[in-house]
């Protein structure tokens, strides 16, 4: 039985394994949740995660606005043919919103992506819809409209190569990139 505390435990584990290896352990640890989204308990998530943010611009002590910060804290992953931000990513998006709200000079580009299935221009539209979902969440959490730009690459810039759900799940994403 998973609890909201999972969101604390996983990044902590990642940290213990080392910053460089963080991505790999993230993949391994988060995989069941990607493929089994039904097990996630949505209602209490938001409050629980918010409390997990120790201080501004950090999640569990890791900077979230750096290019070299782990993907796990700058990328939101999506279900197939869906643009809905999954509950487990809401605290991460919220942390970014708080950071943006605290510093109006900060700017983010939300890069929407899709997996390779289906037609390319439709995937561009899907990627954009995901970026807009994240943008909406950022705005509702205090970020200003002028701080956010969206772009969709559709399936043109895959994060993982491979014709399987493992790769596809990593490609259905919105990357939060600080300019």
């Amino acid at each position: 039985m998973k609890t909201p505390f999972n969101y604390l435990i996983i990044p902590a584990l990642a940290l213990m394994l080392g910053a460089c290896g963080g991505m790999d352990s993230m993949k391994t640890a988060s995989e069941p949740e990607v493929s089994e989204p039904a097990k996630v308990t949505p209602p209490a998530a938001s409050r629980a995660t918010t409390s997990a943010v120790s201080n501004l611009g950090y999640i569990n002590g890791i900077r979230i606005d750096r290019e070299n910060s782990p993907d796990s804290i700058r990328t939101v992953y999506f279900e197939y043919d869906s643009s809905e931000v999954r509950t487990e990513f809401i605290p991460i998006v919220a942390a970014h919103a708080e950071l943006l709200a605290s510093d109006s000079s900060k700017r983010v580009v939300l890069e929407g992506h899709a997996d390779e299935r289906g037609s390319r221009e439709y995937n561009v539209a899907l990627g954009e819809r995901r970026a807009i979902s994240v943008r909406r969440l950022l705005l509702s959490s205090g970020a200003r409209d002028s701080q956010i730009r969206t772009i969709s690459y559709g399936e043109e810039r895959p994060a993982a190569v491979g014709q399987n759900e493992n790769a596809w799940s990593k490609n259905r994403r919105v990357k939060i990139r600080y300019e």
């Binding site: 221009e121 561009v124 539209a125 954009e128 730009r149 969206t150 772009i151 969709s152």
Partner: peptide, 9 residues
């Protein structure tokens, strides 16, 4: 065209 967002297809 180079509007914000999608300029495609």
């Amino acid at each position: 065209s180079a509007f914000a967002g999608i300029n495609g297809a």
